[in-house]
Design a protein around this nucleic acid. Sequence first.
DNA 1: ATAAAAGTTTAGGGTTATCTAAAAAATTTT
DNA 2: AAAATTTTTTAGATAACCCTAAACTTTTAT
Lengths: 218, 218
Amino acid sequence: MLSYTEENYLKAIYHLSGSGTKAVLTSEIAETMNTRAASVTDMIKKLSAKNMISYEKYYGVKITRQGKAEALMVVRKHRLWETFLVQKLHFSWDEVHDVAEQLEHIQSALLIEKLDEFLEFPTVDPHGHPIPDKTGKFVEVRQIPLSDCSGKKKITIRAVRNGSPSFLQYLSKIGVYIGATVAILEKIEFDGSLEIMIDGKKKVFISREASQNLLVTE
Amino acid sequence: MLSYTEENYLKAIYHLSGSGTKAVLTSEIAETMNTRAASVTDMIKKLSAKNMISYEKYYGVKITRQGKAEALMVVRKHRLWETFLVQKLHFSWDEVHDVAEQLEHIQSALLIEKLDEFLEFPTVDPHGHPIPDKTGKFVEVRQIPLSDCSGKKKITIRAVRNGSPSFLQYLSKIGVYIGATVAILEKIEFDGSLEIMIDGKKKVFISREASQNLLVTE
DNA sequence: ATAAAAGTTTAGGGTTATCTAAAAAATTTT
DNA sequence: AAAATTTTTTAGATAACCCTAAACTTTTAT
Ligand SMILES: [Mn+2]
Ligand SMILES: [Mn+2]
Ligand SMILES: [Mn+2]
Ligand SMILES: [Mn+2]
């Protein structure tokens, strides 16, 4: 059984490790958790003692199989709650993250199973991120940043890489949403910005930075 | 801003004080919170410093206007979540309390307003308890224990006084629910138990203890 | 009216999660 | 290869919440 704080650290480590593929440094954890390195070292020892991570002094941590499973359950809860907030309570996609940060720590296996069923077993959250099933599995669709796309193929917006409220609000404002169809009309040499057509009816320019934060399939 | 623990203490004090009408003793709080009197004294000082309660050493605490308002918001959240769990996620009424104990501490005014709307502004929770509105007001219906009823009037079950899972499961088993109509067929002198008719079709005997924990209107 | 009992507070600690400052180790620069 | 810099760990504190044991106050019983 993990505490609220331990769950948050473990989730951060999971994300920073690229779903458990690489080691994570103390300073990276401190950065994302908004804490000091000394606090991270303390927590690392606790998570290590609980076999959630393996820890080599001065060389960062690796998440264990067990730690990954726990992290995935927190991610599952976070994304199911975000889906609930948008689909049932009509939150906008920029309002849900902070509330889900709290809701993801509610302890009740029954609750999360019933919520999943109520939402009809969604596979992605409002930001296009995959929702792990109760065994921790999820479908991984190969997605690439819009900035890496070329030509005039038909492109579908699948997910946002950065979920900050300001980016999400901006996307809503210009008419970009998960599932939208876009075509690249022109790539501006000067600054890497793109002129795109959204759903075949709206032309807009978006910055390179914005295009790097939109994940798409061609 | 109150902590998770402060909210729980304040809610307990509110309930123990009879909605703020009488003083509450340290020992009573310790009893319901499953803590020691010494811990209660510590918390009393904190809540007192935050003007949630007024405190006279050795003579217990009284909840302030502000404290009552805060407590009512926690009660509102608790009961709205219980209603959600039963009506939308199809929990049974004996499964919701522990989960609601966690959910009641989620901090988001928007969430609770949207949840209220989603549930179509319910006035009572699954146990028949009134749900305060966003200003803290709720309808108080005069209810009496079934054990205090006499004669063969038409009686409606309005609420349970004791919400323990075992009592609720027992009620479901014998067919008693909020809104059910009952009639008293006979009061057994020997032990105060009652023979009742539920919804005009099912006769059962219930103990005095059970009848004292059913609140009804005649 | 006193003594005993019951209830409450204070004193002194323990745990978790955080911090700053100092020490230690690794990495980068010269 | 040293020196300088960066990163990490350790040491020592603090705040919130809880505990036991002892001291103090109120209530009850004799
Ligand atoms: Mn999120
Ligand atoms: Mn998301
Ligand atoms: Mn309840
Ligand atoms: Mn209830």
